[in-house]
Design a protein around this nucleic acid. Structure first.
Lengths: 207, 207
DNA sequence: GACATTTTGTGAGCATGCTCATTTTTCCGC
DNA sequence: GCGGAAAAATGAGCATGCTCACAAAATGTC
């Protein structure tokens, strides 16, 4: 069980590295699982002993790419900005990490977006949870208390919308994306603060 | 050219009706294009003379479902509520129309979500454009002027987030979805108004 | 080292969305 | 109604993600 375990880990790593190169070179859709297996030097079926499906390979790569962000963010210097500023910095740092995967992000969105579906690709799901935990922690740190589920829901929606905008082939330049992030967070934090004083205004627009 | 055209239209309609039944009975993924073609009584390949791909069939069905909304909304009585209230009513009415397709919506999201991609499924794309036009028209009507692209972008993100939440198999009941809609619109309209007075506060959280 | 057991590798085969060369049907001028 | 052209239908075939029964290798036990 010694040699095997190491060999398995190495094979897994070779799959990931090979897939990364192929995805980068030809894109996700154009890279077939047979190609990847061939390039790694394993049988086609063996690939699926390591990952449940093709998407999981990509999800793992993307999750790995953002893994370092945790530490980076927790180590930030204690001179803090506003909640909005820190949130901006956090997301912008994440975008930097995700940059190599920009065009592939939309593949994962369907899986990552749906909060309730229990981890079609585990990597992505934990990515989501960790991201939201970080945001919640940050909010609490800035005296906003525990964000209710609806706030996290709205934040996540805005975040996904940002990623989608960013992931498009066409025009969106880095600065456009950051401008959208700026607007998104302004809207979100503005709403958070306005919710605070009056717990629930008498709005009843039922239909 | 008379008989043929009518026959074509009828076949197209039969495909749509059959697909609707199959999708409703077994879901989108589980209904194969061969099944649909068989049930209609045409060859498998013929299906693709009528629709470019399977998703386009669903997109057409969904677009048709919401087609009536245009008229319904334009005919609303002149006693108006606030922008937020009217927007709420508009979206809620749309949800009612989309209800039979609730579970299938996520299939379309990747196609519908991406604004720049030029109409992978034309039906959906025009659905998006029309929806945004209606929102813009409504905003103008309420003295909010022409909504800039970023506003529409944010609105659309929130709308898609709502649909995604709604489309989940799990818990979300109708009232939860409406509550989320309420929060989304409160956040959106609040931000719209706060943007008005001061054109651009000196925010510069660059990283 | 021989055996049994567990783990891992293998690739033929399946399902399904979609294509396309060929066949069949329809249209239209005469 | 005939003949050719245009349009439509057809289904064999392809690509690809994934499965699974079997083979091979590794591991543990004596």
């Amino acid at each position: 069980m010694r040699v095997t375990a190491e060999a398995k880990a190495e094979t897994r790593q070779r799959i990931l590295e090979t897939a990364r190169q192929l995805f980068a070179a030809s894109g996700y859709e154009a890279s077939t699982t047979r190609e990847i297996a061939d390039a790694v030097g394993i049988a086609h079926g063996t690939l699926f002993n390591y990952f449940p499906n093709k998407e999981a390979v990509l999800a793992t790569l993307v999750a790995d790419a953002t893994a370092g962000l945790h530490i980076d963010f927790d180590r930030r210097s204690p001179e803090e900005g506003s909640f909005e500023e820190e949130l901006f910095a956090f997301v912008a740092a994440g975008l930097r990490k995700l940059k190599p995967w920009r065009k592939q992000l939309s593949v994962l969105l369907e899986t990552v977006l749906n909060p309730l579906t229990t981890a079609a690709a585990d990597g992505s799901e934990s990515m989501r949870l960790w991201h939201l935990e970080t945001v919640a922690r940050l909010a609490k740190h800035h005296g906003l208390g525990d964000l209710p589920p609806v706030s996290l829901q709205l934040y996540w929606t805005l975040y996904i919308g940002l990623l989608l905008f960013w992931s498009q082939d066409g025009s969106p330049r880095q600065e456009d994306t950051l401008a959208l992030l700026d607007s998104s967070l302004a809207m979100f934090t503005g709403w958070l603060q306005s919710e605070k004083p009056s717990p629930s205004p008498n709005k009843k627009g039922r239909v």
